[in-house]
Simulated scan of single mutants.
Amino acid sequence: MKLSLHAYAATTRAYIQRSKRSVAELVAELGVSNPALARRSTVADRPHTPRTLRTSLTAIEERMFCELRLSSAIG
């Protein structure tokens, strides 16, 4: 049975999770790559932010930021 599901659809994610078929069969049926299939086979959403920050503060900038945060009652 050939299904015509969009590879990024939420219904596809549910279909992949419920399926008893092999990864190779699902890849061929849905027309997605193995990594794409692996991303859709998990239930939990992953964060969209980088794991490491690409900016770093100098000691003076960090001190200024902390003072600003404390003086404005944010933190």
Rank of each mutant, 00 (worst) to 15 (best):
P47W: 03
R13K: 15
A44E: 13
R39L: 13
T49L: 13
A9Y: 01
R13D: 12
A28G: 04
S22I: 03
K20T: 13
T49N: 09
E29I: 01
A14W: 00
A44K: 15
S41W: 06
P47D: 09
Q17S: 00
S41P: 00
E29Q: 10
K20Q: 14
A36K: 07
L37A: 05
P35V: 03
A9V: 01
Y8Q: 10
R21G: 00
L30E: 02
Y8D: 13
I16N: 03
A10H: 11
A10M: 09
R13I: 11
V43M: 06
A36P: 01
K20D: 11
G31D: 04
P50G: 03
T49Y: 10
S33D: 09
S22Y: 03
A44W: 03
T42H: 15
G31C: 03
K20L: 09
S33K: 04
L26N: 01
S19A: 14
V43G: 04
T49R: 13
T42P: 01
K20H: 08
H48C: 07
N34D: 13
A24Y: 04
R13E: 12
N34F: 03
A24T: 13
L37S: 06
H48S: 13
E25N: 05
A24W: 05
R39S: 08
Y15N: 02
T49P: 04
L26H: 03
P50D: 05
K20I: 05
L30V: 02
T49I: 08
V32H: 05
D45V: 15
L30R: 00
